[in-house]
């Protein structure tokens, strides 16, 4: 890494016929320094946060965590792990098709007035605080529709929150594919659906996946919208979509950290650890799958 950066800083330029001016060399060096500093600041923050979570979670990371349900101030996190997976996957199943459809529409037909209106509304939706979505879900679904605290209410609330992120990352990813690819597709007689599914989506997949993983991470890290919709349960989910509350990991972080017992604090940090590393696994898995599928497809880039 160091040699590459030295090279880009212009240290080896003696051998080149064209030597940049001193000012440009200094500018370059300063630029790279600033960039390294930016990265170091982020890495510092990252290690400080992760270090805090790992150190505090380490003493409780034992198999019982995955085998037992939450019981009072202790026990395990089996019910919360199950609930987090159900809620995240559920909200992704609802949000991904809608969000990606919106993103595809924006990138392929989004130049007109409708496109800008959609883009505009999508950006506004990002600014809705999650607690407001939660309260909306509470009034609309938990009380008005009589669903009580339930999986359905939690999933739909989370899905609304994820929509704009998925839409925006899909749009940006699709827009980055050169137009020549589309022309080639249409030139070979492909329909629009065919072109989108067989050519554009696979090409845009890495960036879309980044966006979706960000969305999953977000959905797993949220507490406020779920508190008033999914509720919380100390027990395993019984499969009902309505009438039954469900547990999730962020609840454990949020409320067990508020208890005066050391044991519940450790459980809270264990939950934070599981979420962070669960998402890490997801990202790794996603990348691995992507590399494989791209090898198979043969990327056109």
């Amino acid at each position: 890494m160091a040699t590459e950066i030295l090279e880009t800083m212009g240290i080896k330029t003696v051998e080149k016929r064209y030597a940049p001016s001193w000012r440009r060399q200094w500018g370059n060096a300063l630029g790279w320094l600033a960039i390294m500093a930016a990265f170091l600041i982020l890495a510092g923050a990252f290690f400080s946060i992760i270090g805090e979570v790992v150190v505090k979670a380490f003493p409780v990371l034992r198999p019982a965590l995955f085998a037992k349900i939450t019981n009072g101030i202790g026990g395990g996190l089996k019910n919360a792990i199950e609930g987090s997976l159900v809620l995240s996957l559920g909200s992704l199943l609802v949000a991904a098709p809608i969000g990606m459809a919106a993103g595809i529409y924006l990138s392929e037909h989004g130049a007109g007035r409708w496109g800008s209106a959609l883009r505009f509304l999508s950006d506004v939706l990002v600014g809705v605080p999650s607690i407001v979505l939660g309260y909306f879900g509470y009034i609309a679904m938990v009380i008005y529709l009589g669903w009580q605290f339930s999986v359905a209410a939690g999933v739909i609330t989370l899905a609304v929150m994820l929509l704009p992120y998925i839409a925006r990352s899909t749009e940006l990813a699709m827009a980055n594919i050169p137009n020549a690819v589309r022309e080639a597709g249409y030139g070979l007689g492909a329909g629009e659906g065919h072109l989108v599914f067989k050519v554009l989506l696979p090409g845009a997949a890495p960036a879309i996946m980044t966006g979706i993983f960000y969305a999953v991470a977000l959905s797993m890290g949220e507490t406020a919208p779920l508190l008033y919709t999914a509720g919380w349960s100390n027990y395993m989910w019984n499969g009902h979509m309505t009438q039954e509350p469900i547990g999730y990991l962020t609840y454990v972080i949020w409320s067990f950290i508020n208890e005066p017992f050391a044991e519940s604090h450790m459980l809270a940090f264990a939950a934070a650890f599981l979420i962070t590393f669960g998402v890490l696994m997801l990202i790794l898995l996603g990348r691995w799958m992507l590399v494989r599928s791209q090898r198979k497809l043969g990327a056109y880039r």
Binding site: L145, G146, W147, A152, N238, G239, M241, T242, Q243
Partner: peptide, 20 residues
Amino acid sequence: LSRNINGIALLSALGLSAFA
């Protein structure tokens, strides 16, 4: 309204979770 809608909500919920 909630009483009337309760039924509809329940039906749709049953559709979603027939196995349960």
